[in-house]
Structure formats: C-alpha cells, structure tokens
C-alpha cells in the first residue's frame, strides 16, 4: 500500500517535479474555466435556465458571505467562491477512476491553507491598514496578543490538517475496503466520502470567511 502522505511525481524536469496533484489541478482548472466560459457565453437580462442556476450559485455565495462576515460580499466573492468550488470539485474528483483528489495530499491543502493565511493578512490590511490589522491581534485586550499570533498560525495548520485528514481518510478507507472486497461494498463509503468532501469544502470556505472577518477592524465588523 502506498503511503497516503506522499504523492508520486509524474514528470521530473530538472529540479522541478510535477506530481499527479498538479496535473489533476490543471485539469480541474481547465474544466472549471471552460465550464464558466460556456455557461457565461449568453448572459442576458432575462435569464435562461442555465443562467438562473449560475445566478443561484452566485447569490448563495453572496448570501453566505453576508451571513457569516456581516460585510458586503463584492470583494470576497471570488476568493471564497473559488476556494469552495475548487475544493468541492477536487474532492468529488475521486469519483473518476484512477484519479486521486489533489486535496488528498498535503501539498494542495497546504497551498490552500497558505492562501487563506495570506488572504487574511491581505484583506485585513486592505480594510484597516497595517496598523488596523495589527490592532486586531490585541482583541479583546493586550494580553491576548501572543495567543492570537500563535492562533493565527495554528488555525492555518488546523485548516490544512482538517481538509487533508478528511479527504485522505476517505480515499484511504475506500482504498482499504476496495482491497478487501472489490464489488459494491465500497459504495456506501464512497457516498460518505462525497458527503464529507462537500461538507469539508463548505467548512473550509466558512472558516476562511470567519478568519478574514476576524481580521477586519472592529468598526468594520459592527457594520
């Protein structure tokens, strides 16, 4: 049994190793972008059925951002929505035979968690300036500054490990069951894996929102 913690390299170009995760991610990217291009070709004021579905997706993302962050969703929509969409599609790509989800490997999750970490800083600084962003570490009082600093790192690791553990465990369990009994037995586990994948994508996006909202200056939070 292969270690679930390592991903085999597909190509080795000099020092650059390109793993299957990167290839899978490229494929997912291509699919997502192509789908978006196809779907948004004929946008009109009077929506078709496809457009209604698209607008429902966008509206739902906006509503979630509004509910969770208590902020206008315009600036965060692309980041949060893309995170959710990518993780969702990546998790469910385990349906395709022979494909290991990119999120089942530590590197992709680490990249996502790193992006959330950077986004928290980026949006925090954008909203309140560097001073305002740093001031959010002193909430509720100055004693909490070290804890807040440590938390901002640990919650990133928590994010990473949560997504990785869920997706990897799902894939791992399905693999183990598959090695024991090949036919029909893994199907409930695969269904559970799909549910876990969807919920984890949702939770990842929600947590990203919560972290970003936590980096907003308190004045912005009250709005």
């Amino acid at each position: 049994m292969n270690s679930p913690l390592s991903s085999p390299p597909v190509w080795q170009i000099g020092p650059v190793t390109i793993t299957g995760d990167v290839v899978a991610t490229w494929v997912i990217m291509a699919v997502l972008v192509a789908a978006s291009l196809l779907a948004t070709r004929h946008l009109a004021l009077v929506p078709t059925r496809t457009q209604a579905v698209l607008e429902l997706i966008v509206g739902t993302v906006d509503q979630q951002i509004r509910d969770t962050m208590q902020l206008p969703p315009g600036r965060y929509r692309a980041f949060i929505g893309t995170l959710f969409g990518f993780i969702f599609v990546a998790n469910w790509s385990s349906l395709i035979p022979g494909v290991r989800p990119p999120t089942a490997h530590l590197e992709t999750d680490a990249a996502l968690a790193l992006l959330v970490f950077l986004a928290v800083i980026w949006f925090g600084v954008q909203a309140g300036g560097i001073r305002g962003y740093l001031a959010t570490f002193a909430t509720p009082n100055l004693v909490m500054v070290p804890l807040n600093v440590i938390e901002s790192v640990t919650r990133t690791f928590s994010l990473l490990v949560r997504l990785f553990g869920n997706v990897m465990s799902g894939v791992f369990v399905v693999g183990i069951v598959l090695s024991l009994a090949g036919l029909l037995v893994p199907i409930p586990l695969m269904a559970l894996d799909l549910l876990t994948g969807a919920v984890q994508a949702y939770i990842f996006a929600i947590l990203a929102m919560v972290f970003i909202a936590g980096a907003m200056p308190p004045k912005g939070n009250k709005q």
Partner: peptide
C-alpha cells in the same frame, strides 16, 4: 445548522488529528 456544521467540523478535526498522528506513526 450552519453553525452546527462548522462545530461538527471543528470537533471532527480532533478525530482527524488522531488519525493523522496514527498515519504518521504508520507511514512516516
């Protein structure tokens, strides 16, 4: 239910941590 899901994910993270530790012990 949204809060519940987030909380469940948080709680589940603990189990996942344990699973990760186990996997680390086994494979790494």
């Amino acid at each position: 239910s949204r809060t519940l899901f987030v909380g469940l994910a948080m709680i589940e993270t603990m189990a996942i941590y344990c699973l990760v530790i186990a996997l680390l012990l086994l494979f790494a």
